[in-house]
Computed example of a mutant assay.
Amino acid sequence: MKIPMLDLSEQYQSLRYEIINSLDAVLLSSTFILGDHVKRLEQDVASLSNALFGVGVANGSDALHISLQACGVKPGDEVITTPFTFFATAGAIVRAGAKPVFVDIDPVTFNIDPTKIEQAITKNTRAIIPVHLYGQATDMNPILEIARKYDLYVVDDAAQAIGAEYKGKKVGELGHTTCFSFFPTKNLGAYGDGGMIVTKDSKIAEKMRIIRVHGSKPKYYHQVLGYNSRLDELQAAVLNIKLQHLARWNMLRREKATAYTKLLNEKLSNFIVTPTEVEGNYHVFHQYTIRVEKRDELQRFLQKNGVSTMVYYPVPLHLQPAFQELGYTEGDFLNSEKAAKEVLSLPMFPELKLEQQKYIVDTIEKFFSSYFS
């Protein structure tokens, strides 16, 4: 049996004619940049997030960068975030001219540990970027309390968590801004790059709209140094169709996660740690990520037996060569370093079949039976 990490073919077949018709309408309209499809998506994603404003941008990385600039982050400032995340989180901080300051993760959720944030704050700290990794919200209440205490901005990296909830609130209504990615593999994925920022702050929203079009308002009159970072109309047309199905797809992901956890805990609880959904959270399982000590050996065995897996992420950011000048060394963030050696994401998509999940778990069981025989 061959099982990919992600299979988008069945999803496309179910939406094919609707998507083709919508794309054809865009092509016939000859409006390709910041048209009605983008405006509709901005409104609907803001509404989904219990925010007031949406700003479509070229990708999730730009969403972070533009958010920081709109919040006034500048050279010499510091921004606190997690080292256990995709490169773009800290990359956006550097692109804004600021310095990333890392804080270790909670080993259960893989999200930033709020109890460690306050000790990392200095007179130069300007913002905090919590990352809602794998589809589960960070523990936000203590982070928001710290932000209020020290007058800091909170820029949520929710690239993997659209539709997730925290204590009855939507991811998207918690921070000053929230950044989503529409990369094709995401729970709400485009057919190319795309991103969105949502906020309740009208002034921040207006700044972001200006920044995304080279800093101009009106056209050809440039208030600030901005960027060419716009969500295009074709991608928005696709996303408007897909957004109608997001809640169901997220529910199906949760069902697949429940099945994985039941199967794994029945057979392999001595070898594998399954994901924990924190009480009060609504986890949307962008990834189903286990912890296992023999991670690399297991991954090779699964690949040999037709099961694709991924490691998100094998090198924490404080040990990346690109951030060497920050001065961090191995041992500085033990939870992140240990997670980087143990995490393994199993195939996860709404159309995943129970038969496939049983095969994956049976193959993992065979690995441990042979490894310790």
Rank of each mutant, 00 (worst) to 15 (best):
1 M>K: 07
14 S>V: 07
19 I>F: 01
24 D>G: 09
31 T>V: 15
43 Q>S: 14
44 D>V: 09
47 S>V: 07
55 V>T: 03
57 V>L: 03
58 A>K: 11
58 A>F: 05
60 G>D: 11
61 S>G: 15
64 L>D: 02
66 I>C: 01
67 S>E: 07
71 C>M: 14
75 P>F: 01
76 G>R: 07
76 G>N: 11
79 V>L: 00
80 I>W: 00
81 T>N: 01
86 F>C: 09
96 A>V: 02
111 N>G: 13
115 T>E: 11
115 T>H: 10
122 T>W: 02
123 K>V: 13
124 N>C: 08
125 T>Y: 01
125 T>G: 02
128 I>Y: 01
131 V>I: 12
132 H>F: 14
133 L>V: 15
133 L>Q: 13
136 Q>P: 11
136 Q>M: 14
137 A>N: 00
138 T>R: 00
146 I>E: 01
149 K>M: 12
162 I>K: 06
163 G>D: 15
164 A>D: 05
173 E>K: 11
177 T>D: 11
178 T>I: 07
180 F>W: 09
181 S>E: 10
182 F>Q: 05
185 T>A: 15
186 K>P: 07
188 L>Y: 06
196 M>T: 04
197 I>R: 03
197 I>Y: 04
199 T>Q: 12
202 S>Q: 13
204 I>Q: 01
206 E>L: 12
213 V>G: 06
215 G>M: 10
220 Y>I: 07
221 Y>V: 12
229 S>R: 08
233 E>H: 04
238 V>A: 08
265 N>S: 12
267 K>I: 04
271 F>Q: 08
273 V>S: 14
273 V>A: 11
275 P>T: 03
278 V>R: 14
279 E>F: 13
280 G>N: 08
282 Y>G: 04
287 Q>G: 13
288 Y>M: 10
293 E>L: 15
300 R>F: 08
300 R>E: 15
315 V>E: 09
319 L>D: 07
321 P>I: 07
327 G>D: 12
328 Y>A: 03
331 G>C: 07
342 E>A: 12
343 V>N: 12
344 L>C: 05
345 S>Q: 10
356 Q>F: 02
357 Q>F: 08
358 K>F: 09
358 K>N: 13
359 Y>C: 04
368 F>T: 05
371 Y>K: 12
373 S>L: 15
